[in-house]
Design a protein around this nucleic acid. Structure first.
Lengths: 208, 208
DNA sequence: CCGCATCCTCATGGATACTG
DNA sequence: CAGTATCCATGAGGATGCGG
């Protein structure tokens, strides 16, 4: 990116991550280290030459590091500690996007893994004292685990630990609920759809 | 901006504010409503056609509103309530930029008004219980007022109210101090340079 | 002056094909 | 698998024009 030539923190940040696709690449890497192919898959629409360019740029500026994967001879990309600190600004933009998400996905692509970033971002500001709970989430076939933490909620990989419940839900519905819990002035509970056979009920998972 | 085609809050946010210059325009408007000429002056390097384009885009997407200035027949631009909520993500990026600001301004342009955004952003995360104080700031000829608040510090326009002190300081120095107070692990105080005649001392203004 | 619109040039992004 | 190379379309930047 061409320099803005301004001694301003925002301008200098954008010279590093303001280029098209850059923050979306960081989003993918916030989910964990990934190989080139994983990034192509998680960033539908990106051109292969652009991904290569951006990874070079981000590596040169100290946001991303390129290394050998633990499992042998293939390359993987990961965030540096400084790069990981982009989680805050990114979560802020995710919260800000609420009005843009309400209309639903339309024809846009969706990856369940994106919820691992979006759900905690949307819930972090509202719920103060979450009760202790471990909920399994089956979202569009992807398995996650939702657990309460002092800072809000954390969504992580499913690890087959003892769960209080397992919930099967539509991705868009989960996002809508999370956004609604943030948006509606008096909302204090997060509900999730539970489907068993052909019966569906809305369960209250967390109440503040 | 061309759509990313992803049902992801970050992607949809960036479709609105991810275009070059957009967040910097929002930065300027976070300082208060401004006319076209003010924006040109506060955004050194922007081309006039781009500013016009971006203002149209931001108005169409509901971030900015265009209205008649109170003082008569001229046009002014202001943030909508939703646009104002970009303050959070922008402050996050300003904090993230600390390593990029340490080397100093070099040949980059600088506007004292940018500090009104940067200083509170840098201090907000660290200082928990600021003592009551009202400090005048004379930064490169621009007058501000720094006051303690429950959420941290606020920098506002100078209004000639009774002040505990007035401080004359170099812009870069203030920014360096604010960044340092955030960066250094054990820093708990904010000092400011006070110049009286040819004597300069560093005063501790706030201690946590 | 202010608030843009037009025109032109050049850098960047996007899609696809291809290679070590 | 992990990228390059190529070609075309789009957008940025700078200069200038122009009505109010």
């Amino acid at each position: 990116m061409r320099s803005y030539g301004q001694y301003c923190g925002l301008a200098r940040s954008l010279e590093v991550v303001g280029d098209r696709w850059n923050l979306l690449i960081v989003r993918q890497l916030l989910l964990g280290p990934a190989r080139y192919r994983d990034l192509i898959d998680g960033l539908p629409g990106i051109a292969t030459n652009l991904l290569a360019d951006r990874l070079r740029d981000l590596e040169a500026s100290g946001v991303v590091e390129r290394r050998l994967a633990t499992a042998g001879n293939t390359i993987e990309y990961a965030l540096t500690p400084w790069g990981s600190e982009l989680r805050g600004p990114i979560e802020g933009l995710i919260r800000w996007s609420t009005p843009l998400m309400i209309p639903g996905p339309g024809t846009d692509a969706f990856r369940p893994e994106w919820l691992a970033l979006a759900v905690p971002a949307l819930l972090a500001t509202r719920v103060q004292n979450p009760p202790a709970a471990m909920i399994g989430l089956d979202i569009g076939g992807a398995l996650f685990q939702l657990r309460s933490a002092s800072t809000g909620f954390e969504v992580g990989p499913h690890d087959n630990h003892a769960l209080d419940a397992t919930v099967h839900a539509d991705p868009a519905y989960i996002l809508g609920l999370a956004a609604g819990a943030l948006t509606l002035g008096d909302a204090r509970a997060l509900g999730v759809v539970e489907t068993d056979g052909d019966e569906s009920v809305i369960r209250t998972v967390f109440a503040a």
